[in-house]
């Protein structure tokens, strides 16, 4: 689990349930985690991957992706797909304060991954923005 107090336990359980649902719906996923945009784990459901370091790296990649998207006139960040020799890492915006990062085997159906992850990230955005909103909103964070 995240071990951070960014979201209340109830919300964390709901995010985790969403991650589990996602892993059940998309074959060949090996890891799923929700992180804040500044790199803290909100919830994770993964086989082996180091969630903390993935979340931190996601935040770094997110910063570059955001600037890249911005400076080429593509607007706000939506998603990032990295294909390595042995699989994929995909990051989807979940509202303004959080992202959903998924790790998948090379055999994964990317079309399905996108469809399911986009839906999940919307639901997570509602969950997270709602909780963070009640606690002052993402604008207050560093």
């Amino acid at each position: 689990m995240g071990g951070t107090a960014l979201v209340p336990a109830g919300a964390e359980a709901e995010i985790l349930a969403e991650l589990r649902r996602l892993r059940a719906r998309v074959p060949h996923l090996t890891g799923a985690l929700a992180a804040s945009v500044d790199g803290l784990v909100l919830a994770q459901d993964s086989a082996a991957t180091e969630a903390e370091s993935v979340a931190a790296l996601t935040a770094a990649a997110l910063g570059v992706a955001q600037r890249l998207s911005d400076s080429t006139g593509q607007g706000g960040f939506r998603e990032l797909l990295v294909r390595g020799e042995h699989g994929y890492v995909a990051t989807y915006a979940a509202g303004n304060a959080a992202v959903l990062t998924l790790i998948a085997q090379p055999r994964v159906n990317i079309g399905r991954l996108h469809l399911e992850a986009r839906r999940s990230s919307l639901r997570m955005a509602e969950l997270i923005d709602h909780t963070l909103g009640r606690r002052g909103g993402p604008g207050d964070r560093p």
Binding site: N109, I110, G111, R112, L113, H114, L115
Partner: peptide
């Protein structure tokens, strides 16, 4: 290999071709 469509035509709200592409890949 990816489940993504290289091109679609027609469809609409009753037939989401992105969903069809991913599902029929399976």
């Amino acid at each position: 290999a990816s489940g993504m469509a290289l091109g679609t035509i027609g469809g609409g709200k009753d037939l989401d071709l992105a969903v069809a592409a991913a599902g029929n890949t399976d």
